[in-house]
Amino acid sequence: MIAPANHRPADYSPKTALQKKLINRPRDVVTESLEGLALAYPNLLNIAYAPPVVWRKDAPVKGKVALISGSGSGHEPLNTGYVGRGMLDAACPGGLFTSPTPDQYVAAMHAVEGGAGALFITKNYTGGLLNMGMAKEMAEDEGFRVQTVLVNDDVAQNDPENRRAMGATVLVEKIAGAAAEESRPLDHVAAIAQQVADQARSMGLALTGCTSPRIGYPTFELPADEFELGVGIHGERGRQRRMLASADAMTEMMLEPIIQDLGLTEGDNVLALVSGLGATPLQELFIVFRHLHHSLAQRGIPVIRQLVGNYITSLDMAGCTITLLKLTPELTRLWDAPVHTAALHW
């Protein structure tokens, strides 16, 4: 007995243990999903499985800084959906909600490095940092040049060192990807990535937990009239449980701390990302975006660029995250630059 009876997690009933998902064997979910991705984008992506790496078909691009992003699976389209011209050169998909291993980064380096070094984009999680740190040491031992950028945009955490990465990850990858495509040197690309990370903040809420296929029951269950405020993207509970309110009121609960933390003032231009967590209809996301747009306009903070949809998810969790990025003319221009990936293209 490795946990005392009164602290042993409750056994789940067979009813809730029967998950309703379009899967074969739970242990094959990540691999089979990657196989499907490869078949869906034959002209865009190369995919290897041992270790798992997804990289753009035209890599290595000579003289271009390579952007490599690692992340657990279960956040699709992050990051595999962002591999392609104008964004990532390679993504290293880990297990479900599990950061990838160092050998995945090193394999990605060999596949995509074009002689100008690489930028590793890392989300601020203990495992992500540890594995990426080891990967950087291993790649540098092989003579590669590597810089890193840390994304930590979640204002639900009071301690900035402990802030999780959320939607800003997508914005960093898009904007740094555009800078790399302009053949800028590694220092510049890293500086722009850092600027985006520094000027973006996020907050999320959950209406339900999520069910990892390897586990088969939800990470938490909520009464019908409550929601979790300040959640991350790994099915964990939020900072607080609150009574359900209107979409406008719940949007305001996410928006206010972001505005305060970013120190946004009248006249600032922002990019807004409203991302579903996996099981929320677009219809509801647009209702959230509607209020967010109005509320910011009333404060004299116009939303001049936006993205609404499922861009960084947490399996089948219902709810959403909001991300605001304080724009500059250069960041806006790089955001507008062409991108050709599975999930973003213009």
């Binding site: 997690p9 297990g95 586990i215 990470t219």
Partner: peptide, 24 residues
């Protein structure tokens, strides 16, 4: 042997992957 317990402990306060990952 304890994979399920590790996972349930992690589901309560983490992201429910510790048992699965350690088993791998």
């Amino acid at each position: 042997q304890e994979q399920a317990t590790l996972t349930r402990l992690d589901a309560a306060i983490g992201d429910a992957d510790h048992g699965v990952n350690m088993q791998h």
